[in-house]
């Protein structure tokens, strides 16, 4: 058993768990944050993507113990004070989701990719960057649109702030 303390969405969460406990299980079962989903067993679907120390990772492919001491942001931690994150808002605006199951992972992947590319994101790059996220409902068309719109909006906001 391992005692694991992870700062999740700014709040310290501690639990004693089996060493084999995956980060996704810690988040869902110990932290009670069920927005992070599990859609496969082979680290491909990306429904479980969260940010660990600022980087998008698959929480199904990381032990909770590996994340001991880390800062984790999940889908629940993205909106601030009831205000949707621009990526969340763009998914809504552009109908970038249907059943919603892949959506948390998609949004966390999208924010990570925008963090890295900013306004340089074009359609081809977005599609390539989504290699680690599978959606069965949307055909990706509106997800790509939403991410592009969010990247542009965030770049605009950043520029305005300068």
């Amino acid at each position: 058993m391992a005692t694991v303390t992870i700062t999740v969405n700014g709040k310290k969460r501690s639990a004693t768990v089996e060493d084999r406990t995956l980060l996704v299980n810690f988040l869902r079962e110990n932290a009670g944050l069920t927005g992070t989903h599990v859609g496969c067993d082979t680290s491909q679907c990306g429904a479980c993507v969260v940010h660990v120390d600022g980087k998008a990772v698959k929480s199904c492919t990381m032990l909770a113990a590996q994340a001991d001491g880390a800062e984790v942001v999940t889908i629940e931690g993205l909106a601030q004070g009831g205000e949707l994150h621009p990526v969340q808002a763009a998914f809504h605006e552009h109908h970038g989701l249907q059943c919603g199951f892949c959506t948390p992972g998609m949004i966390m992947a999208a924010t990570d990719m925008i963090n890295r590319y900013g306004a340089k994101l074009d359609e081809a790059t977005i599609r390539k960057e989504l290699d680690g996220n599978i959606c069965r409902c949307t055909g990706y068309h509106n997800i790509v649109k939403a991410i592009k719109a969010a990247a542009d909006a965030m770049a605009g906001t950043a520029q305005a702030a300068e």
Binding site: Q44, A56, V57, K58, T61, A109, D112, D131, G132
Partner: peptide, 9 residues
């Protein structure tokens, strides 16, 4: 290699 999330780890 892999995908962006895999490359982070």
């Amino acid at each position: 290699i892999g995908d962006p999330h895999v490359r982070h780890m």
